[in-house]
Computed example of a mutant assay.
Amino acid sequence: MTSTSSIALTGFIAWALFLLVLMEVIRSQLVLRGKVPANGFTPDNSNLSPFMQRLARAHANCVEGLPIFGGLLLVAIVTDRTLITDPLAYLFLGTRVFQSLVHLASLSAVAVTIRFTAFAVQMAIGVYWAFMLLASA
């Protein structure tokens, strides 16, 4: 039976992949239209539009969080302790996607505060999961 945790982990990976594919589709269009040479991209898209810079950072945020949050989900899955992670797994995934969407939309002070709040929820969930997984070991 598939656990909520495994669905959330797959969703997290799929979201990071979606952001990567979106970035590469836009980059490919820029190359094909002759606006940027194929070797003209920086990892942070600093030479591109503000949206592309935010997209690169939103993707990087997902990749940075994957070993931590994804790792906790994976530990729960492989040790058959998803009863710990399942109740908050969808909330975690939802706040991760929401954080990225807010990041893509704006860098205003309000948006940054909202984005940080979503990340703070993820951190709290991660701390809870880590504590409970260690306590039940």
Rank of each mutant, 00 (worst) to 15 (best):
A135G: 15
A135V: 10
T79P: 03
L19P: 03
N47V: 10
V36I: 07
L22I: 10
P37D: 09
Q29K: 14
V25Q: 05
V63S: 13
L17W: 11
T2R: 06
I77C: 00
P87Y: 03
T95G: 08
R27N: 02
D86W: 04
I77S: 02
V121H: 06
L48W: 05
F116K: 01
L93K: 04
L55F: 12
A120T: 09
M52E: 10
P67D: 01
L22Q: 11
L17G: 14
V97F: 07
S100E: 08
F92K: 03
T82E: 00
L48F: 07
C62N: 13
L107M: 13
L22Y: 11
V25A: 06
E24Q: 15
D80A: 15
G126F: 04
P43N: 02
Y128K: 06
D44Y: 09
L72G: 00
D86K: 06
F18N: 02
S3H: 01
F41W: 07
T113D: 14
G70A: 02
A105P: 09
L20W: 13
D80E: 15
L134M: 15
Y128L: 10
T42A: 14
L22W: 09
F69T: 03
L9V: 09
I13D: 11
A16H: 08
Q53M: 11
L104D: 02
G70V: 02
F131V: 13
W129I: 00
L83C: 11
V127A: 07
N61H: 12
L66C: 04
A120D: 07
G126E: 04
S106W: 08
T2P: 13
P50Q: 11
S28C: 13
V36G: 01
G70D: 06
A130V: 01
A60V: 14
P67T: 04
I84S: 00
H103N: 10
P67M: 04
W15T: 00
S6D: 13
F12E: 04
A137H: 13
S49Y: 09
A124L: 10
Y128G: 04
L107E: 15
V102P: 05
P37E: 04
F51E: 07
T85M: 00
G11I: 06
D80M: 08
L133H: 03
S106K: 06
L55E: 09
T2G: 05
V25D: 03
L91K: 07
G70P: 02
S100K: 08
L72Q: 07
G11K: 03
L9P: 01
F69S: 03
S28Q: 14
R54A: 07
A120N: 06
A105Y: 14
V121M: 01
A111I: 01
Y128A: 15
R54N: 04
V36P: 03
V63H: 12
Q122P: 06
T95R: 12
L55D: 09
F41D: 05
C62G: 09
R33Y: 11
N47Y: 10
L20K: 12
A137C: 13
V102G: 04
R27P: 06
L104I: 00
L101R: 09
L66V: 08
T95V: 15
A76R: 00
T10F: 14
